[in-house]
Every structure is written in C-alpha cells, then in structure tokens.
Amino acid sequence: MKKLLEVKNLRVSFHSYSGEVEAVRGVSFHVNEGESVAIVGESGCGKSVTARTVMGLTQCPPGEIKEGSEIIFDGRDITKFSEKEWQRYRGGDCAIIFQDALAALNPTLTVGHQIEEKLKLHGIKDKKEAYSETVRLLTAVGIPNPEKRYKAYPHEFSGGMRQRIMIAIAIACNPGLLIADEPTTALDVTIQADIIDLIKELVKEHNTAVIMITHDLGVVADMAERIIVMYAGKVVEEGSSEDIFYKTKHPYTRALLNSVPRLDLDEEKELEFIEGAPPDMTDPPKGCAFAGRCPYCMEICTKEEPPCYEFNEGHTAHCWKYHEYAEGLFGEVEE
C-alpha cells in the first residue's frame, strides 16, 4: 500500500512566558492511502499539535517546528512549501474537522456561503455549479431541507448539525487526507454515534485516509485500523486496533484502557487509576515521561529514554519493560 503521509521525527515547541513548551518531541508515523488511523492520548499529550502541524495550522511564532522534522505528503515535504502550495494543499489535499464547530464556522455568513467559498477557492468557478454542489454536499452529510438550510446561519443549527456542516466543508474538495480533531467530544452520545457513522461512510465512499484524534478509546475501537497512543509529546505505542486492545504492551495504554468502566460488563473491582498528573512540558523529564506514574518503573526509566520494541508486524512500544534484562522481572501480565 502506498504511503500518503509520512511524519518523521516531528518536533514542535511553543515559546511562552514560562519558557519553551515542548509540545511534540520526536513523533514519527505514517498513514497509508485510504487508511483510518487514530491518535489517542490525554489533553496536553501533543496529539492536536501534531495534527495541526500536518495541516499547516501551527502558528510560528509562538510555535516552532524544529529543524530535522519532516512531513512528507504524497512525496513532497510540506514543511518546505511556498505560500501558494500551502493554499492548494490546505483544504484541497488535506482537510480538517475541528472540535468546536460553533467557533470554527463564521457566524456572520450563511453555511451555504461558507461551503461555496471553499469550492470557489479550489476550482469551481461557475456560480450555478457551486450552488448545486453545495446542495449535494449538504444532502450527503444528512442535513434535511438542504435548499432551505443553505441560507441559514451557524447559530440556527444544533451542535450535531453544525458538526455535519463542518464535515461538508471538509469533504468539499475530495481531500486525500481528512483530519478529525476530537470531532465528537462536545456532542451527546447519540449524536456522537451518528457523526462517527457519517465520517465512516463518507471516508469509505471516497477512499479518503483519516487521522482521528480522540481521548476516548471507545470511539475508535470500531473505526480505526491502526491506533497511535501518545503521552507527553511522544508516541508510546502503535499498532493495529486488535494489538492495542488485546495485546496491550505499554503500561500507559493499559492504564488508559483500565481506567474507564465498561458498560457491558458488571465490574466489581475498583477502577484502576494513574497516580499523579502528566509532566510539565516546559521541563520534560529525562528518560521515559511516564516513569513518574508507572507501576513498573525501574531505575533506568528515569535516566534513559526507552528504545522501541517491535512485537509483531507494525506493533511497537517504547518501554524498558521489554528489554532482555528486564525479562521475567514482572511476570507476564494478563493477556
């Protein structure tokens, strides 16, 4: 399968009053054509910054994409794009759905206008054609009465409907890559399920690759082919959905899975929780960032960064636990 996007050693920092915040510290991953990849992690782990940098939305300054970072989209390094190339890429090749649709849409323009705006920027010059395409898009994302709703303003829609408009704008030019940055976090569960279904359907139809960013592993259980787990600006584990859920390797991933109660099981046991809080990214810890909260922490974890171990095709974890010297130390944890 062809690699559509390849991120190599991405490092992004933000300069603030309290010093340099190292939001992303050497992230590498790839997305194949038509593949659904999920990036999972808690707030502040750098998942949104990663996605926004791929989309070219990281403001520099205060942000800084460090030397040595490479983002290769379809064979071209986007960090070296000119402004004109950026314009074609953003929205044309790659589109994004934001978490807060009300903040992302322009409140003073009708939704029809906002969808058309994008179509016009990316090629459709004829007014009538743009209108009919807009109506088609509104229908595709499940807005009832599209001709009438074309003239409505964002505040006249409910949260779920607004998110549908965002999706319509995102898919307007058939992008090769769609980034969904917590698209359902602000929505109710029933609407969340509808939106996820819609994204799944559209992506399948057009063979679009998706990067789904979320903090909720449940949301991506069914949707993502591959899952990347991030913690404190780094990838800690990566693997297929089955690998992550059933053959969990990294202690953080396991803790993340065990700290949410399951609706379908009757659990009597106390919820597992992770002691403490994520590290301060102005002064990231030496060694493994999770060491301070990890039940398996060894001496080496606080001193040196863990290497990457591969377990089977495409399933990797960064953890000292899997070093040959640590073998048998902790016993094999339940499968």
């Binding site: 569960v189 029933t190 969340q192 449940g218 259980a221 959905s241 379908d264």
Partner: peptide, 22 residues
C-alpha cells in the same frame, strides 16, 4: 437507543453490536 450509542472500548464487541438509530 441511548445504550446502543455508547461506544465500548473493545473492537470485537463493537463490531457485533447493533446500533438503534434515533
């Protein structure tokens, strides 16, 4: 309907569930 919309963090279970759409 509410129950069926709640995602379960288990891909196998999730694939077999049927969702009641409102």
């Amino acid at each position: 309907a509410l129950l069926s919309a709640i995602p379960i963090p288990d891909p196998k279970v999730e694939k077999e569930r049927e969702r009641i759409k409102l």
